[in-house]
Each structure stands twice: as C-alpha cells, then as structure tokens.
Design a protein around this nucleic acid. Structure first.
Lengths: 178, 178
DNA sequence: ACGAGCATGTAACCAGTTACATGATTGA
DNA sequence: TCAATCATGTAACTGGTTACATGCTCGT
C-alpha cells in the first residue's frame, strides 16, 4: 500500500492540488508508481481525514480546486513507513505467460505484440535518457539529487533490458523451427 | 487477467490437481506469475464452469482431490488470448517510492531493508543459475525449450539487475553527505 | 482410533480499474 | 450564452490478499 506514501512524498517535494498530482503521476512519479485521478482523489480524502495533509481552497482557479500540503503528522508517518521492512515485489509478467503459452499452442501472432512492446520500451528509454541529459549533467554531488539520479538510472536499465528481451524473443520466434 | 491463462498453460504442460498447481506456482511458473491456492481453486472452478477444463476424481488420494485437464475449448481460448494485444506492464516499485521518500524525510533505516532485499535477489539469482545449469546445458535446439530458456534468462537478468541496484543504493546512502 | 497434515474450499476485505457524473470557468 | 474543458468526484466491479473452515487419509 504505497500510494498514500507516494502522495505524501510528492506533496513534500511540492504542495499542489489533486489535478496537479495526477499530472505528475503521468510523468516523473508515474515512471515508478502509477495511479489514476480517481485513486488520487480517494486517497487524498483519506489522508486529509487522517490529519496527515491539509487542503486549502485555491481561489481564482476553476472548479473547487484545493491545494494540499503535508502536516507534521504526515511527515512522521512517511518517515515511519520508509523505515518499514519491505517484501520483494510480487512479479506478474504477462509476457512470460504468453511466451510459455506460445510454446504450447503456438504459433500465434505474438510477434506483432512483441514488436509493439519493443517500440514502447525504446520510446520510454529515449525519454529517460533525455531527462538524464537535461537534469543530471554534470552528475550531481547533492545526496538527494544523487538518489533521484539513481532511481532514473534504474528506469533506464529497466527499459533497455525489456527492449532487448522483446528483440531476443522476436528473433527466436521468427527463426526457422527444427 | 492472466491467471486463467497461466493455469491453462500449466495444465497443458502437465495435467494435475489444484494442490499440484499451487506447488508449481511456488516454483517454475511462480517465478513470473504468483498466485495463492485460494486464487487457484477459485479460478479452476470458473474455468470448469466455462467448459475450458475438466476435472476427474483421483481415487487413492487424500481428500477429494481432482485432476484437471484442458478441453479443446480451453486450448482455443489460450491461443486466442496469446495472440491478443498486450499493454506494457504497469510499474509499481515500492522501493523507488521509498528512496524518493528517503530523500525528503531521511535518513531512516532504509539501509537494512536494502541489505535484506539485495540478499533476496542474490539468493534467487543463484536458484535460477542452478536451474539453468541443470536444465539448459547444453543449450537446447528445440524451439519450445529455447523459449523456456529465454524466459529463465530474463529472470536471471532481472535478479542480477535488482541486486546490483540495491547495492548501488546502499553505497549511496552510506556515503558521507556533502 | 486419533492427531498430523493434505486437499479443497468460504468469507470478508482492499487496491486498482472503468465508466459515468457534476460544478465551475474560460473563450468563442 | 453556450460549448469546451478543468477539477473533483461517485458507483460498480474485479483481481488479489488474509484469515478461517471442512473433510479426508495416512502413519503411529
């Protein structure tokens, strides 16, 4: 259950309204934790009810926009959670299931899906590399910045690895069977 | 929604009872798709109700054990699903959230958690490498076997990558701040 | 014959998903 | 003034999780 803590972190980094957070979950934070606006609003309501954040009306804005900031209790809760033990990520990789199924009931058109997926990962790799060039040259010396850089580099390695995997699987599937 | 298809694949590879499948989801299949026995029994009941699999009582077994095998309709459904378009995996990486939180409210005891996690990934890496040595030397020429080998190699790369990441994060967190 | 443990479930809950709804403001 | 769009939701559903329950048989 990391969404509330991802929200607290984001709001400490910069306070803002639900819609702004939704935007950030489509970009920076969203690269390692995804959430829809429905989830975000629901969770903000819970955090506010629990007294961890506080929202104040933003006037001169559309609708009934409210900016949230983290209260001391929210900071404390975030610190508590950060120090908590963590179980390894449960892995659920649909493509691995598909490949194993392909070995049983193939051949199918899995090759097309792999090509699309490879392109997706190459695109995202490019995006990350652009961010790295823009934000982390020269490499930062500040610890917070170095942590963020590390997270980004993990994303870069991940995308590179996934793209390469798709390409290997494509090569295997399109090789003549024997 | 890949669990039913993971089950169909597993049952084509080798028919068996729910408890046997639960065992396989703790080993081979479980390395890329996890499921508890509750999920497995629920899903088997659905697949049977949909006419995709068939269960027959195993006598001489404990309890009311039933062996399931995949019916032609099940094979057809698996082939249909395998050829389906696939969205990229949604990413939800709790450790990345923690690292970014650490940058805001740290330092915490995150270092301990990272050490545990690194050990977990090194252990699993060792397991995979042992499986590779046992099952895939010499490298297979059969296409199905090569596909399985590819899936295993992806697992190996994943664990290696995660372990290295944890070690880098530990080095960064324990370096003197400036 | 009886406890340990295997095989199969039930029930309640929670996070995430999908589809739709409402109120306010801006711009043509 | 009214359509487009922004900001904030509500409702219903689904897959996965956690805790507990039941029936059977094997070994002692």
């Amino acid at each position: 259950m990391s969404l509330p803590h991802a929200l607290l972190t984001a709001l400490i980094e910069r306070p803002g309204a639900g819609s702004e957070l939704a935007g950030r979950f489509d970009r920076s934070i969203g690269y390692f934790w995804q959430a829809t606006h429905q989830q975000i609003y629901r969770e903000l309501a819970r955090l506010e009810a629990a007294g961890l954040i506080e929202g104040t009306a933003v006037d001169g804005a559309r609708g009934r926009k409210r900016a949230f900031r983290v209260l001391p209790a929210g900071r404390a809760e975030l610190a508590r959670w950060t120090a908590e033990r963590q179980e390894p990520l449960p892995i659920r990789d649909e493509m691995m299931v598909r490949l194993r199924a392909e070995a049983m009931v193939g051949p199918t058109t899995l090759l097309n899906t792999l090509a699309e997926l490879a392109q997706h990962h190459r695109d995202r790799l490019k995006t990350y590399q652009d961010i790295e060039k823009r934000d982390f040259t020269p490499p930062p010396t500040d610890k917070g910045q170095r942590l963020r850089h590390l997270v980004l580099k993990a994303g870069i390695e991940y995308e590179r690895h996934r793209a390469a995997f798709c390409e290997q699987a494509m090569a295997l599937l399109s090789s003549p069977s024997e």
